[in-house]
């Protein structure tokens, strides 16, 4: 726990604020998966954690390790890029799976296909 005393004051405060912000956003998103009523409403909730929740904590990590001087910390950007590219893919696939299941079972408020698909 000695590294916390080595940090300059502004870096410690910025890290603390950003970590709290990111964790709070992630928690609100997780609460959203509990409280919202239908699946398509719930699919919006995790994006809170994956957009600015992740972004704030990564920024805190960058500030913390750059100020400690152990490394010029930019590796966290890799996680940021990775998360922001992969989250839409997973959520899109999940939404398509859900809409497919709803349509085959014929329930839910899902609108029908916009146009008949051309034969591939």
């Amino acid at each position: 726990m000695s590294h916390a005393q080595d940090l300059p004051g502004w870096a410690a405060l910025a890290t603390a604020a950003l970590v709290l912000l990111g964790a709070a956003l992630t928690l609100i998103g997780a609460i959203g998966t509990l409280r919202l009523r239908s699946f398509f409403e719930r699919i919006h909730a995790p994006t809170l954690g994956t957009s600015w929740g992740t972004g704030a904590i990564l920024l805190a990590s960058i500030i913390c390790f750059s100020a400690l001087g152990s490394r010029p910390a930019v590796q966290e950007i890799l996680i940021g890029v990775f998360i922001s590219v992969t989250t839409p893919v997973t959520l899109m696939l999940l939404a398509r799976a859900a809409i497919y299941r709803d349509r085959t079972e014929g329930k839910g408020e899902v609108p029908p296909r916009a146009a008949p698909r051309r034969p591939d």
Binding site: A23, T33, F39, P46, G49, T54, I57, I83
Partner: peptide
């Protein structure tokens, strides 16, 4: 359930 698992992975990473 899959959505919950995905959100859980993100929280674990953070």
């Amino acid at each position: 359930r899959v959505l919950g698992l995905d959100a859980m992975y993100v929280s674990a990473m953070l």
